[in-house]
Nucleic acid binder design. Sequence first.
DNA 1: TGTACATCAGTGAACGCGCGTTCACTGATGTAC
DNA 2: TGTACATCAGTGAACGCGCGTTCACTGATGTAC
Lengths: 245, 245
Amino acid sequence: MTDAATNADAGLRTPRERARARTVADIVRLGREHLATHGAAALSLRAVARDLGVVSSAVYRYVASRDELLTLLLVDAYNDLGDAVDAAVGAKSEGDFSGRFHALGLAVREWAVREPARYGLLFGSPVPGYRAPAGRTEAPGTRVVYSLVGILDDAYRAGELAPPPADAAVVPPALAADLDAVRAGLGLAVPDSLIANGVLVWTSLFGAVSFEVFGQYGPDTFKAREDLFEHHLHVLAGLAGFRRG
Amino acid sequence: MTDAATNADAGLRTPRERARARTVADIVRLGREHLATHGAAALSLRAVARDLGVVSSAVYRYVASRDELLTLLLVDAYNDLGDAVDAAVGAKSEGDFSGRFHALGLAVREWAVREPARYGLLFGSPVPGYRAPAGRTEAPGTRVVYSLVGILDDAYRAGELAPPPADAAVVPPALAADLDAVRAGLGLAVPDSLIANGVLVWTSLFGAVSFEVFGQYGPDTFKAREDLFEHHLHVLAGLAGFRRG
DNA sequence: TGTACATCAGTGAACGCGCGTTCACTGATGTAC
DNA sequence: TGTACATCAGTGAACGCGCGTTCACTGATGTAC
C-alpha cells in the first residue's frame, strides 16, 4: 500500500469509503507518473484510466474533470514539496536560523531535481487554459514561502539578521505600502528593507533552481552544480541579512 | 508590410522568393499569436494554416514539421528579446556600465511582461516532446547572457567592479574549474568570485521576472511591481560588484 | 436473520472535436531555347 | 518573341490517432426494516 493510500484511509469507516479513497490516491499517483513522462499539457484522463485498468468514463466517478485532476496534482505536489522542506528545516535545531535557511534552499533544489515535471507544474509556465480554483491551492502553495519568512523573521527577532546598509535600505513609498501590508498580514517584525531583500532571496532561490531544472545552463557549462548552488545559497544568506559565519 | 516580412525580403531576387519569404514570415507571425493565446503545447500547424487561409497540408511547403515551426518561433523570440536588450543597452553610453546593467534588466522584464507566452516558451518548463535541434538556437539563445557578461567584464576591466570580500570569495575547486572554463571560453578578465556572483545575478534576474510573469506573487501582494523589480535590480547590481552610486 | 431497496462502481457506445502527416492532383508562375 | 517544359503553391481527401465528456446500462455492495 502506498503512503498516499495510507493517508487517504485515515479515519474512513466503511470498506467502500476506503476503496474509494484508495482509488482516488491511485488516480493521483498515475497522474503524477503521466505528468513526469509527458508533461502537464498532455495530462489526459483517458491515459490515467488506461493505466488504472478501467474504462475512461469510470474515472468520472472520482474526479469531476481534467481540470480537477490537475488541481489535485497541484495540491499533491505543493504538499510533497512542503513536506520535504519542513522535514529538512525541522532537522536543524530551532535556534540555528542560518542552518534552517540553508536546509530550506537545499531541500527545494533536491526536490526539484528529483521531480522536474512536478516542479515545472508548480513553477514553470502556467498550464494553458487552466485556472486554479479559488481556495484550493493557496494554502499548500504558500507553505515554502511562509517557512522562509518564518525563518527570517525568527532570526531577526533573535538579533541575528543585520539590516542592509542605510543607502541600500531606501524603499520607494508605493513598494513600502506593499511591504507594510505583508508585514501586517503575517505579523512580522522585520523592517521593509529586509522584507524586500527577502523577496529577492525567495525569487532568486527559485530562479537558480529553475535554470538548473529547465536546462538553461546548457548541458556542459556547469559540472559542479551542487557547488554552484551552495555558493548561491551562501551569497543569498548574506543578502537575507545573515552575518558571515 | 510587417517588419518581419521586410527583413525576410532582404536580398531576395525573384518575386517567388520574396513571396515565399513573406509567407514564412506570416507563418511565424501567426504561430506567435497562436502561442500567445493558447500556449506552446497547443501550438498546431492546422490552426496556423487556418489563420493563414490555406489548407493544412499547404504549410508543409514552408515548414517541415510542427517541431520546426517551434524552432523558428524559439529563434524568433530569442532574437526579439536580444534586439530589445541590445537596443536598451546601446542607448546608454559605453562607459556607463551600471546604467547598461540596469537597462539590460529592465529590458528583459519589459519584454517578458509584454510577451508572457513567448517568455514562457524560452524560460518556462520545457515543451514536452520537443528538443531543439543542435546549432539552431544556441547563438540567439545566448545573446542576453553574453551581453550581461560583456557589461560585467568591461566594468571590471575599467576598475568599476569591487570584488566581493575575501570570505565570500571562496569557491570550491570543482566549481572553480567550471568557472575557469567559462573565463577561458569567453576571454574574460573577471575573477572566479565575480563570475560566480554574476551567474547568481543572471539566474536571479530571470527568477524575479519569471515569478512576476508566471503569477507566483499572487494577484494582490505586490501592486508596485516596477518598484519591486527596480529595487531587486539595485541589490543585484551590488551583488555583481557595482559600487553604490 | 432475511428480504427489499438504494447506492455505487464500472461498462460500452457514442458525440464531436482536433491533431500531424502523406499523397496524388491542378493551375499558375517562371525559365530555357 | 514565342513556345515547351520545369518548378512551385496550394487543394482536397484520406490515414490513424487521441481527447473530454455524456448517457443508459448491468451487477455488485451496502442499508433499513
